[in-house]
Design a protein around this nucleic acid. Structure first.
Length: 267
DNA sequence: AGAATTACCTGAGCGC
DNA sequence: TGCGCTCAGGTAATTC
């Protein structure tokens, strides 16, 4: 599943390959995603030049000058880039074709993704307006996290997965960050000390940055394959031995999400 | 307001 | 072999 690091790697790669190129044709095979894909895309985009791509949480925003192409990969979505026409396969829902022949293809078996269009200020968009600070910026720091947690009874893992609190922290990285911080995921947010919030804000940034890395690959170009650059210590390892103390890792459900932690190492 | 729950969707894995 | 079941989970919408 694409988490923030994969979305960021995708953004960098696509911007490097496609910035300055002009859309020539849109092929919309399946428009029924989590939100309906605007059919008008096929008339709006051709002729427009892609200026840049920015990321907000896990949303990709393609700056097309007169408006923005918004893409979210959901659970199972990915973008692939081809240098020449390539026959579509199952779940290849949308093609964006550029003036140099490049083909950007949106693929999403589970259809949890979003492909949309809007004009105007991204901050005013309903999907984006309520998103909290970016975890890789200074705005997300110990003081901010402590204030957001103060008085809240919700589990700290659910708090950091709340996009209104901090953008783009998904289940995998929430599990990993809490393990690294030594904090139990089911702790009531309001019980965290300033010092714990400081550690947590730092390790959230660390796990995301490590995963973005230098050479992380992603499923974008024809020959590359998705993988998870971060060495996961707890996610998907319920019942296995803790890498820190050797005791068995616990697995619980928190907000209907798989949650793995070490009772001994996390307090 | 905050917290909890539901909906969206398909492939993988499993028991029988 | 294949049927039916459960699970995976980001996020918006809905309910409590």
């Amino acid at each position: 599943m694409p988490e923030l690091p994969e979305v960021e790697v995708t953004r960098r790669r696509l911007e490097r390959e496609l910035a300055g190129k002009r859309f020539t044709q849109i092929v919309l095979r399946v428009a029924k995603l989590r939100l309906p894909v605007p059919v008008a895309l096929a008339e709006i985009l051709p002729g427009l030049t892609l200026r840049a791509i920015i990321r907000r949480g896990k949303y990709l925003l393609f700056d097309c000058g007169s408006g923005w192409l918004l893409i979210h990969l959901g659970m199972t979505g990915y973008l692939r880039l081809f240098s020449r026409p390539t026959p579509p396969e199952k779940h290849d829902h949308i093609d964006f074709i550029f003036d140099d022949g490049h083909l950007l293809r949106f693929h999403d078996p589970r259809k949890f993704g979003i492909v949309s269009w809007f004009a105007g200020d991204p901050q005013q968009q309903p999907l984006l307006a309520g998103i909290g600070p970016e975890p890789l910026t200074e705005a997300f720091n110990s003081g901010y996290l402590f204030d957001a947690a103060r008085g809240r009874k919700v589990a700290i893992k659910q708090l950091i997965m709340n996009s209104a609190v901090v953008a783009g922290v998904g289940n995998i990285y929430a599990n990993e960050a809490l393990f690294r911080a030594g904090i139990r995921p089911d702790r009531a947010s309001g019980t965290l000390t300033v010092s714990e919030c400081s550690v947590l804000a730092t390790v959230i940034r660390d796990v995301l940055e490590e995963s973005i890395g230098d050479g992380s690959t992603c499923r974008i170009a024809e020959e590359t394959v998705t993988y998870h650059p971060l060495d996961l210590k707890v996610y998907g390892r319920g019942g296995e031995a803790c890498s820190g103390c050797g005791k068995q890792l616990d697995e619980i459900r928190l907000g209907n999400r798989s949650t793995v932690f070490c009772r001994s190492c996390q307090k």
